[in-house]
Design a protein around this nucleic acid. Structure first.
Lengths: 337, 337
DNA sequence: TCCCGTTGCGAAAACGTTATCGATAACGAT
DNA sequence: ATCGTTATCGATAACGTTTTCGCAACGGGA
């Protein structure tokens, strides 16, 4: 608001008695400046505490030495990826810029367009929906919604994880299992549903389609669906939610209804966000190695911005992490198997 | 690398048959464009999927509608604050940009200088060390290293938290208590140490200065110190670490040495990062409401960028969260009290 | 002495946008 | 018809950098 007069290249130049061009060369270590002037200019830079303006530099220059990680929002899932991406970028010479570009449809394309080329030299996209991004910079996608595409991609074994989780519930003796699905048009959500159905089919257990709903990963929708399902006369004895956030929402509802978890209803999630273990009842869930995925994506991006080529698709393993939210159904004989 | 030709304002202008000035007005909803041309231009914008370049806009314009959160790195502590800041900024009309500016001394000033004014309209600084920042934009500090200063500040009751944690150990019967301190030149570290010493003094328990060390919050240093202290013939029966990261490092060492936690040694941390509850032995720790602190800082920043004034200093309460890493000392009679 | 290569430096043109301000047209009132 | 007012719109100058390119000074060989 007040004219605090940020120190700029021209100020340094004036005080050092050289041109802005020369100062720029010193800042960027370009060739063509004598040792003497270089030292003198550097002194002034230090004195004034000059730090170049990123916008201006990026606008004119070709590269900024900054990498971006573009997310829809900083929810737990993205935050874990971010931690991993950061460790992956440490000591790489690049700074990291994380951008949360609102939730409207197409945020990835918008974010990318606004930043790419001038602010960042490359980007990691977290769960992007639209991918036909023809920007000049390298891009890596984590868990894209339409599956591995033209972009180098990091994801995890969604099918296998869901299959294993469902098997776990079946092994415990559950037969009436509800499924809180993600969106059908998203790859991860679809594969998790496929895994669930495949495991049920393999066990010869029919699926009550009234118990298989979409939640779009929205906690509110999940809570609502859970409430109506648990109010049924023949309520399900177990719930498999397609991600932890919805699983935790379901748990809240169940506990609020006075039900015991896992006594009255078992709950399994997907992702293993940090909140899962801190839940009122520590959540049994399918673990994705989120930090490792973030680090891997960042390292792929690094090889790309450095001119190399990287794997087109890296798939990480998922593992079932059994905690306290699952147990055999109460009023049932031990597993028939 | 290839000339993928990002679509720019001029492209939209050419196709829509108007000047760039007009397109800019449409984009920013400025007054002075007829309904007709507005609709036509908007159509072209949608067709081409134009999204303004942040650098250029920020460079020339006064405001960018982007707020920054500047951190040293995306470790768990900062990530929690980030989650909170994000929820605090949702539906505010501002986008969020998180910047990790390397770890060298003075990263806050450098980051701020590079971004402020042109890229972001205001910033939240996470544990800044140097504060004399005369940038033109509003700034809020979270847990600054030198305590509340000229900047509006959010922190928590470090003294009280440390006092309570120490009391907890004393109540359990511990007398030989080690302290893994932060840096003396940091406000939070100093206050936590003061709290520890005050509680010990109040209980009339002398402090063995050999058991009070600095770790600079560095896990490696903490591990090293822990190893030597636990190797002592009369090793401490409890460790109070000034943050969770060092507490977890200490726990790792203890377990590696074949000691039982809390059987042989109790451990208390500070912060309550998500990792604390997921530790091999869930960590007893002093909880700072990190997400709430992030949200509060962001809401203060929002009132400032909107021209209002906010509290100069908000202090949040800390609460002791007892988990499994603390118990009475093994070879000792029950507390004398 | 002349020529030419090297070195050090600065002038000036970009980069893509926003803001100012003048020009033009349209229109109602005199 | 003339004038003043308002509504639209476009030229154009910034914003703070990087990069290209030209100019001058200097030296060394012929």
């Amino acid at each position: 608001m007040e004219p605090v007069a940020r120190v700029k290249l021209a100020d340094v130049a004036r005080i050092a008695g050289v041109s802005v061009a020369t100062v720029s060369k010193v800042v960027n270590g370009r060739y063509g400046v004598s040792k003497d002037t270089m030292a003198r200019v550097q002194g002034v830079i230090d004195d004034l505490g000059y730090a170049g303006n990123l916008s201006a530099a990026g606008l004119r220059g070709q590269r900024t030495n900054v990498l971006g990680i573009l997310v829809g929002g900083f929810e737990p899932f993205a935050a874990e990826l971010l931690k991993g991406a950061w460790t992956g970028a440490e000591n790489s010479g690049y700074e990291l810029l994380a951008h949360s570009g609102g939730h409207g449809h197409g945020w990835e394309r918008r974010s990318l367009a606004r930043l790419a080329g001038t602010l960042i030299d490359g980007a990691v996209l977290v769960t992007p929906t639209v991918l036909n991004t023809a920007t000049g910079v390298p891009v890596v996608a984590i868990d894209p919604h339409y599956g591995p595409s033209s972009l180098p991609t990091v994801d995890s074994d969604n099918f296998g994880g869901a299959y294993t989780a469902t098997e776990h519930l079946l092994d415990l003796g559950h037969r009436r299992i509800a499924f809180l699905g993600g969106r059908h048009d998203l790859d991860s959500g679809r594969r998790r549903e496929e895994g669930f159905r495949a495991a049920m089919k393999a066990a010869g257990v029919p699926i009550d389609e009234d118990l298989a709903v979409e939640t779009s990963y929205e906690p509110d929708l999940a809570a609502h669906a859970t409430e109506s399902m648990l109010s049924l006369p023949d309520r399900p004895t177990a719930i498999f939610a397609a991600n932890d956030t919805t699983a935790l929402a379901a748990m809240d509802v169940a506990l609020d209804m006075g039900l015991s978890v896992p006594g009255d209803v078992s709950i399994v999630g997907f992702d293993d966000i940090p909140e899962a273990v801190a839940a009122p009842v520590p959540l049994t869930t399918v673990r994705q190695p989120l930090q490792a995925m973030g680090a891997e994506a960042m390292s792929m991006l690094l090889t790309m911005v450095r001119g190399g080529t990287c794997e087109q698709h890296v798939r990480m393993d998922t593992t079932l992490t059994v905690r306290d939210s699952t147990a055999p159904p109460a009023s049932t004989a031990p597993p028939a198997s």
